[in-house]
Design a protein around this nucleic acid. Structure first.
Lengths: 212, 212
DNA sequence: CGGCCGGTTGATAACGCTCAAATGCGGTGG
DNA sequence: CCACCGCATTTGAGCGTTATCAACCGGCCG
């Protein structure tokens, strides 16, 4: 399967609402996010995509995009044409089922984001997001003793957590002051993942990570 | 494809977290909902399932459930064994792709629920949910001049919208007092769908309804 | 008729929002 | 190398929406 690699700049918008993409996107390095903007200009981030994720497999069967996709930082992505992708999936049913499964895991994450933003108070909410990112990064081998790359602005963070930047900032400060986490220079560090997991009521089963 | 029909009672829990279902569920009459419960007992409803929906196609490729499923009212469902379902999907690739698409549409709805509960104030939030239900019911032919069956308690409503029952009750009252909607005896009526759509900033494209 | 459960209402508190200003940091040009 | 500029971050003060707690109401079923 030939893929076209591409470098995209900070803030570059890969896909817009209403687009009919002809390619499936994979992420190699960097950080992508999926988002929508409400009528009154509020942005909601629905997902962060880390290296090895396949953010846009859904375009194969749902041609019109209802969300947009952007790069938080300069990123390297890979594009595969739909026709080519579909051909591969037809020849390799197990790959097709794995990809389907992947889209279902993403649905599971959306549900958890809904629960998180609807039911958790700011401090726990943020801690829960941090746990998710760390568990996912670790499963992808992209962690190094409690740290991972998470280059987002306060605006991004608040747009994901459904709070204002002011609140996101204050909440982060609270978490940092306890020594539980640190977020500087695009690096997120958890002091004690198990302890944070406990605080955040984080149950990783919704990520459906394969035992290694 | 043979399906086993079954009647289930009000409040019956079809599927629990951790289950490994052996069947796919379809809904014939009634109302199902998918939900989780947080550590401190808060319930979050992730989706309502109306007649003709297939709530649990995801169990085909993600064996362990991370959410539960209940009936809000006595309902009639249909169960199809996984093995049988998979056999059909293998023989009829277009049905398989339609089902895949269906799971993707549900993912799209989860994203919208996230946006709704994270970004919209109570009144607009509730109106937006009502619009979704009406648009879906109409697409399924389950409406009758602005009305549809929506037999939920205030607790269900508040668990879906991420607010307390008190707040849900007050918000509903506000909407009812303007004459925009009515919710009694399990029937939801919209006085003027287009007007409510406008108020709720409702854009149905995320439902990916097929033009008839 | 009485009990029970869901719905309704009131009063108060708290979490998070808004508005506004100040600070810090990275990039650019002198 | 330093000064300056612009933007993101941080901080402060006051307000508002929603949560909390508690009481009351009303319909349905036994």
């Amino acid at each position: 399967m030939a893929g076209e690699f591409r470098e995209i700049g900070r803030g570059a918008q890969l896909i817009s609402v209403g687009d009919r993409p002809s390619h499936v996107v994979g992420i190699v390095t960097g950080l992508l996010h999926r988002f929508t903007v409400t009528e009154d200009g509020e942005r909601q981030i629905h997902a962060f995509y880390l290296p090895t994720d396949v953010p846009s497999a859904d375009t194969l069967h749902m041609p019109v995009m209802d969300t947009a996709m952007s790069a938080a930082v300069p990123s390297r992505i890979v594009l595969v044409e739909h026709a080519e992708m579909l051909a591969v999936l037809n020849q390799r049913p197990n790959i097709r089922d794995l990809l389907w499964r992947e889209t279902l895991v993403q649905a599971s994450m959306f549900r958890t984001w809904l629960m998180r933003n609807s039911q958790m108070i700011a401090e726990v909410r943020m801690a829960h997001l941090f746990c998710e990112l760390f568990w996912r990064a670790r499963a992808a081998g992209a962690d190094s003793n409690g740290s991972l790359s998470f280059p987002v602005s306060r605006e991004d963070l608040s747009a994901a957590l459904g709070m204002t930047t002011v609140q996101a900032n204050r909440t982060l400060k609270l978490l940092e002051d306890t020594g539980a986490v640190k977020l500087t220079h695009g690096m997120l560090s958890l002091n004690d993942p198990e302890q944070l997991k406990n605080f955040a009521q984080f149950d990783p089963s919704y990520l459906h990570l394969r035992p290694r």
